[in-house]
Design a protein around this nucleic acid. Structure first.
Length: 569
DNA sequence: GCCGTTTTCGGCCCGACTGTTTTCAGTCG
């Protein structure tokens, strides 16, 4: 599948056109088409083959022709021409806040600057302030922006940002200068990583609220402080904005600051077509000038004639069209979950006993868990031998006899070995209720080998679930090289369940692949892979992914009651 | 470059801030 390739090409064209100073609508047209193709579930080559390119929203005559050219020849003449006209690497400069396409081009043409390092040198040599339209202030700001850009080049995992945001919200709430308060931005959309944290609030005393915020113990320095907005950086180098809003604008502001940007552009377009003007302050009826204020952001959608769209799917990947036609998915919720199929104990590398994990799961309101300790070949994780596993199974049976209204499924997280064989024989797997298979060794193998191993595992009638199917660790390593389409097709064909691993640095499958899995009829499960009682509580992070992947209750097997749980074997 | 309950041409989200300017361009979210 070459969708990502085609999308990357169109993004590049968009960037080059932007640098060239082309009509912004043309720039946006290419970016829009790129995004549509990126998020598309169908294979672009198949779409092209049946002549359906122009059905893709944002793709017209001109872009369709370029896609066809690319698919046929691997090249696009128009793109090659652009590359000769503008240095592509110039786009790197635009990563520095304060530098847009105009500035980047001027700096390149007048000073020959191409990279961030060269930009820094030019600023330090005071060559920038001498340019027309520039000044000393701008030069200083560029230097500061470069410094800050280098300090926080990586995005923050949601697993870090969300607890931090919650703590801050709690403290400010209890300070009695804040009335309403709500984190917005990509954090509220529950993206797997966020760039910074945006918090919105209302207050009768904005000044006092700002003061309370900039004096929080986590604050390392204050980047800016005005009457309605302040920006701070925490000791962990995380940037947090607080905005104090007027009460009556809270709903429209929350909608606006939650984004995404693309979602907002589309929504405002819809508003305009319906005779309204939507801004962060209000919805204005064009003609009469009558202003509508909303208490919540759900109300914004309703006033515009849409179903309220959950923040997690506000990415302009079809949600607005769905909300217009009344066909939004009913996203699965944490409370729908009845259990967890991927749990470790101190029999392998977990820190808590079987009994303790069961107690903790009951406290979460679950009906069941599956105990899935590692298998024998995973020495580093104290994998269980066949004898130990059978012993554990026996122990679980006896525990189950004593338990009422809770069930423990026996299981294993069995290793898919480097030669594609499964770490336990069928005679052992048969005795497990839930067989979770995963790949831990040989992660550097070729796409063909990795995909082959996963397919072989899924074709085993005893393998019920594939855990963390791509093996990626956020911010640390890319997943292994797996053919996602082949994986999903095989899962659908064999009835193998794919895991959304809830561990905040895994979140694997991710949101887009989960959505794709659903579209192919694959069943999923959100599991914590908990190694302690505490980690059973990480489920919400996996559920964020499930919701961002448009999953509904029926798409997850662990929303079923214990007696309705069916795997393939 | 795309697209149509304003339209096959003329629009394309909206408002605020900043720094450089004498009225605004560039950038951001």
């Amino acid at each position: 599948m070459r969708n990502a390739e085609v999308a990357a090409l169109l993004y590049s064209i968009s960037e080059l056109l932007e640098l060239k100073g082309e009509n912004t609508f043309k720039v946006r047209a290419y970016a829009r088409a790129a995004r549509a193709i990126e998020g598309m579930l169908e294979d672009i080559e198949e779409v092209a083959a049946r002549g359906g390119l122009k059905e893709i929203p944002g793709v017209g005559e001109s872009i369709a022709r370029k896609i066809e050219e690319y698919l046929a020849t691997g090249k696009v003449g128009y793109y090659e021409e652009l590359l000769k006209q503008v240095p592509a690497e110039l786009h790197e400069l635009m990563k520095i806040p304060g530098i847009g396409h105009k500035t980047a081009l001027v700096l390149n043409q007048k000073l020959g600057v191409r990279t961030i390092d060269e930009l820094e040198r030019a600023a330090k040599q005071h060559r920038i302030r001498r340019l027309p339209g520039f000044g000393a202030k701008k030069e200083e700001n560029i230097l500061k922006a470069i410094e800050r850009y280098r300090q926080r080049s990586t995005r923050i995992p949601l697993g870090t940002a969300l607890p931090l945001a919650r703590r801050i919200v709690e403290v400010l709430k209890s300070s009695d200068v804040i009335d309403r308060i709500e984190p917005a931005g990509s954090l509220r959309r529950r993206k797997e990583t966020v760039g910074d944290i945006d918090i919105l609030a209302t207050s009768k005393d904005a000044k006092a609220a700002i003061e309370a915020f900039v004096h929080l113990p986590v604050v390392k320095n204050v980047l800016g402080k005005g009457t309605t907005k302040a920006t701070i950086v925490t000791r962990d180098a995380i940037q947090i904005d607080l905005r104090i809003l007027e009460d009556k604008s809270f709903g429209t502001s929350l909608q606006y600051f939650t984004g995404s940007k693309e979602h907002n552009i589309k929504l405002r377009d819809i508003a305009r077509m319906k005779g309204f003007k939507l801004s962060e302050y209000d919805i204005e009826e064009v003609g009469t000038g009558r202003k509508i204020y909303c208490m919540t952001d759900d109300e914004v959608y309703i006033r515009l004639g849409l179903l309220p769209i959950p923040p997690e799917i506000r990415e302009d990947t079809g949600e607005i069209e769905a909300a217009l036609s009344g066909k939004l998915p009913e996203l699965v919720e944490l409370k729908d979950l009845k259990g967890d199929f991927h749990v470790h104990t101190d029999w392998s590398e977990g820190t808590n006993s079987l009994e303790e994990m069961v107690e903790a799961a009951k406290k979460l309101g679950y009906e069941y868990i599956a105990i899935t300790d590692h298998s024998k070949s995973l020495g580093v994780a104290h994998g269980l031998s066949e004898e130990r596993l059978l012993e554990q199974i026996d122990r679980i049976h006896r525990l189950n006899d004593k338990l009422s209204d809770f069930h423990i499924f026996t299981g294993t997280e069995v290793d898919i070995r480097a030669d594609a064989s499964i770490d336990f024989p069928d005679s052992i797997l048969r005795q497990c209720d839930a067989v979770v298979a995963a790949l831990h060794v040989g992660q550097k193998q070729t796409r063909r080998e990795i995909t082959g191993r996963l397919i072989t595992a899924m074709e085993n009638e005893h393998v019920d679930i594939i855990a963390h199917p791509t093996g990626r660790i956020i911010g640390e390593r890319e997943g292994y090289d797996v053919d996602m389409d082949a994986l999903l097709d095989t899962a659908a064909r064999t009835g193998t369940v794919l895991e959304i691993n809830a561990y905040p640095s895994r979140l694997d499958l991710n949101d887009t692949n989960s959505r794709k899995a659903k579209s192919k009829g694959v069943k999923l499960t959100v599991d914590t892979d908990a190694h302690s009682t505490e980690q059973l509580g990480l489920m919400e992070f996996g559920m964020n992914v499930a919701r961002r992947g448009w999953l509904e209750k029926n798409d997850l097997v662990n929303t079923r009651s214990a007696r309705d749980v069916r795997f393939k074997g």
